[in-house]
Amino acid sequence: MPALTVPPVDRWVPAPVTQENIDWANLTVVDLAKAKTPEGRDEQVRLARDATHRQGFFYVVNHGLDQETVDRMMDIAVLPFDKVDKEEKLRYEARIKQTGEYLGYKLPQYWHIANGVRDRIEHYNFPRDVSRREHPAVLRPFLPEIQKMIEFTHRDIMNEVQKLLSLGLELPENTLPDIHTYDETNHSFWRFMLYNPRPKEEEELTDNVWMKGHADHTSMTALWSQPVTALQIKDWDGQWRYVRHIDNALVINCGDTTEYISGGYYKSAVHRVIKPPQDQDGYRRLGLFYFMYTGDHVRLQPLLESPVLQREGITKVLEGEAPTQETWRKNRASTYGVAELKKSAETGIEYEIVNGVQVKHYN
């Protein structure tokens, strides 16, 4: 990323890495630097393909951003939570249910977790083009940096990942990047997200779950690895396992949109957030996220021209006319965490119906 003249900001001090004995998920590491040579590219295509097919989660390293840049973005990330008063936050509160978009604040206590306990999660969301809306005063000096981070993440990291996954489907490498264009049709968004610790009685009522198990409705989600150990994946064998922290790595997870356009070959990853281990008790979990969508006009239907899908068959498809990305993203966002869920015959699972699809929530 090109150098910018930047305003000063206080440093965010991250939690120390846990020293506890943890059941870690065995996730693949995709190295974008190695993908720059023909031999290395073949290997990274295979790694990205197999990881997304099997688990829907993998790390990306050597993506082009140095640790200093990521650390500074973390310094900025805490500002909308610690340096904005409640009155100003309310002025920028997202109208999620009404609009189907998260832009602005999602304030704590919006989502129901279990047994009457609501979340203690706060996030602030930026559109892909930050100039689309006004932001709290404390963030305005940092908007050029945030915009550069968004553009670099989309064009230089996520589109490189999408090229690998296109080749994994034995399609031209630009197949997926071409439907994830960085233009006005694309409503991908950037998020600063803060998980606040909870009192003991809420932990007991929710069995320590901070966010229920779910699959993202996006195409892909990128989150910068950070040391508070709380993210778990529902692994290939059905067990919940922790995602290990790797300095300056991105954790990429496949969302429902990619699962549908790959006909189920690429798996949408089920994940949740739970109370951190004892030696991280009381720490706040601050994160950087990029939620990537296709263009709004793209229909969520399988890429039938893929030789892989022709050989393997279609295992996941939406009934009837496939919705567009715009319809899917708005309907999923507007109902998440606030819809009345029904009990599934499967133990520990509730569900809602969105666009005729049974969307599962894992307790």
Rank of each mutant, 00 (worst) to 15 (best):
M1L: 12
L4T: 12
T5R: 13
P8V: 03
V9T: 13
V9F: 09
V13Y: 15
P14D: 04
P14R: 06
P16Y: 07
P16V: 06
Q19L: 14
N21R: 14
W24N: 00
A25C: 09
A35H: 06
A35R: 06
G40V: 00
G40P: 00
R41D: 00
Q44T: 00
R46N: 07
R46D: 06
A48K: 03
T52A: 03
T52D: 04
F58S: 01
V60K: 01
V60L: 04
G64S: 01
T69Y: 15
T69S: 14
T69L: 14
D71L: 05
R72Q: 05
R72L: 02
M74G: 07
V78I: 15
K83R: 09
K83C: 11
D85I: 10
D85E: 06
E87I: 15
R91P: 08
E93G: 07
R95D: 15
E101I: 12
Y102K: 14
L103T: 11
K106F: 09
L107G: 09
L107W: 10
L107F: 11
R118L: 10
R132T: 11
R133S: 13
E134I: 05
L139H: 03
R140G: 05
L143M: 00
P144R: 06
M149I: 12
I150C: 06
F152H: 06
T153M: 09
R155V: 15
M158I: 13
E160C: 08
E160H: 00
S166W: 09
L167E: 15
G168T: 00
N174W: 08
N174M: 14
L176T: 04
L176N: 01
I179M: 12
Y182P: 07
D183V: 10
T185R: 15
T185E: 15
H187R: 14
H187D: 12
S188M: 08
F189A: 10
M193D: 02
L194Y: 08
N196T: 15
E202I: 10
D207W: 09
D216I: 11
D216K: 11
T221Q: 08
Q226M: 13
P227V: 03
V228T: 00
T229E: 10
Q232L: 02
D235E: 10
Q239P: 02
W240V: 09
W240H: 09
R241P: 04
H245G: 09
I246H: 12
D247Y: 01
N248G: 05
N248F: 03
N248Y: 03
V251F: 06
G255R: 08
D256I: 06
T257S: 13
Y260P: 11
G263R: 13
S268G: 14
A269T: 05
R272F: 08
V273Y: 03
V273K: 04
K275C: 11
K275F: 04
Q280V: 00
D281G: 03
D281P: 07
Y283V: 02
R284N: 10
L286Y: 08
Y293Q: 15
G295D: 15
V298I: 07
Q301S: 12
L303I: 02
S306A: 13
P307M: 01
P307W: 00
E312D: 12
T315C: 11
K316L: 05
G320H: 05
E321K: 12
E321A: 13
P323E: 09
T324V: 04
T327P: 04
R329M: 12
R332P: 06
A333Y: 13
G337M: 04
A339D: 00
E340V: 03
E340Q: 02
E346P: 01
G348N: 10
I349W: 07
E350W: 07
N355D: 15
G356F: 02
K360P: 05
N363E: 14
